[in-house]
Simulated assay, not measured.
Amino acid sequence: MQYPTLGRSGLRVSRACLGTMNFGTDPQAPTPEPEARRIVDAFLDAGHNLIDTADTYRGGTSEEVLGRAIAHRRAEVVLATKGAAPQGGGPNSRGLSRLHLTRALEASLRRLGTDYLDLYQCHLPDPDTPAEETMAVLDDFVRSGKVRYLGCSNFTAAGIVTAQWAAQRTGGTPLISLQANYSLIMRAIEAEIVPTCRQNGLGILAYSPLGSGLLAGRYQRGAAPAEGSRLAQWAAMPSPMARSFVNGLLAERHFDIADEVAAVAAELGTTAPAVALAWLSGRPEITSVIVGPRSADQLTAALAGLAGSLPESVAARLNVVSQGTVAPAVNGQHRAA
């Protein structure tokens, strides 16, 4: 088992990160609480330690379910959550202001049933709040003992640099991680964000490693997303940006890449998800890969894929077919994890 350090820190995390977006208590939750507990126990029993959630997942019930699942094993977990996304309709119910982040952190701690977080992350950029204000309040969280390390999600290269400079100017705690959309069909971060993270001491946690399911064969070329699927839900949203994201994701070029992944899987006698995960886990710029299984069986398959490796010739072949892939944008930012 490998436990690389996360960014420019001494925090050691597993190469697999358990994403808990599917956990919830509502009837529509993909992963009900009993299965969520089985997933968490299997993940920890396998020796992995990094678990990620967010205050907006399933209306906050993801944090509640996760908190109960790890209550008896808290010391084994590097617990990460995120704040900044909308928590209601009020003007101060979102963003990276001191007011909202303070409220968001306290609410997350309550739902998770813990008095500290190992990694607290800014879920989204907030152009309306000065970086100095955000980094100062995050530093306050660290100094109070409620947070151990700081990270961000969906930041641009410029946003990362601005945050690190703000922390340096205020004598505060810098960011050590970035969550980013990264897969064989979403390689846009390689141009600017990967080098910026390297220069500024951030490790990268890759989310959507299967391209929102496209690399797993869940969507067919020329066909609308199946009813009830995540992409069908996004396509039905009133936001033109959400529909644009779906249309961009289902581009012909992305299906060409998915077809190549499926062909490689057939040649190697494995599955398309295993190939996509093995390619991603072999990328030196990635510290950990976030997988979001709905069941314990899906977790087992995902961990097997991340533990695998591809022949150099196969990895090179996939690199060539997927070069130049750019993630569709929503409001100018990559989709939030």
Rank of each mutant, 00 (worst) to 15 (best):
Y3M: 12
T5C: 13
G7Y: 12
R8H: 14
S9A: 13
S9W: 12
G10R: 12
G10H: 14
V13Q: 07
S14C: 10
R15C: 09
G19C: 07
G19Q: 05
T20P: 08
N22Y: 11
F23T: 06
G24E: 02
T25L: 15
P27Y: 11
A29M: 07
T31L: 00
E33R: 14
P34V: 10
E35A: 02
R37P: 00
R37S: 04
R37G: 14
A42C: 09
L44Q: 06
L44C: 04
D45R: 13
A46L: 10
G47N: 11
H48C: 13
H48N: 15
I51M: 12
I51R: 10
G60Q: 09
G60C: 11
G60L: 10
T61K: 02
E64S: 06
L66H: 11
H72Q: 10
R73G: 12
E76I: 10
V78G: 03
A80G: 14
A80L: 10
K82Y: 13
Q87H: 08
G88R: 07
G89M: 06
G90Y: 04
P91T: 09
P91N: 01
G95H: 09
L101A: 02
R103L: 01
R103S: 03
R103Q: 09
L105A: 02
S108L: 07
S108D: 00
L109A: 04
R110A: 13
R111L: 05
L112W: 08
L119I: 08
Y120M: 01
P125V: 06
D126M: 12
D128W: 02
T129D: 06
T134G: 06
M135V: 01
L138V: 04
D139N: 07
D140N: 04
D140L: 01
S144L: 03
R148S: 13
L150H: 12
L150W: 13
C152N: 07
A157V: 02
A158L: 04
T162H: 03
A163G: 01
A163W: 06
Q168F: 01
G171E: 03
T173A: 11
S177H: 05
L184E: 03
I185D: 03
A188N: 09
E190I: 10
T196W: 06
C197I: 04
R198G: 01
Q199K: 00
N200I: 00
L205I: 15
A206S: 15
G211Y: 12
G213R: 13
L215Y: 01
A216K: 01
G217S: 00
R218H: 12
A224H: 10
P225V: 10
S229V: 02
A232F: 04
A235F: 06
M237T: 12
M237E: 14
A242I: 06
A242G: 00
R243F: 08
F245R: 00
G248K: 11
I257P: 11
V261F: 10
A263L: 04
A265Q: 07
T270K: 08
T270E: 11
T271G: 07
A274L: 00
G292I: 02
D297W: 04
T300E: 11
T300S: 14
L303N: 03
L303V: 09
G305L: 07
A307L: 05
G308R: 01
G308L: 02
S309W: 08
S309N: 12
P311N: 12
E312N: 13
S313V: 14
A315F: 14
A316K: 11
R317C: 05
R317N: 07
N319V: 03
N319D: 15
V320D: 08
P328W: 09
G332H: 01
A337Y: 08
A337H: 08
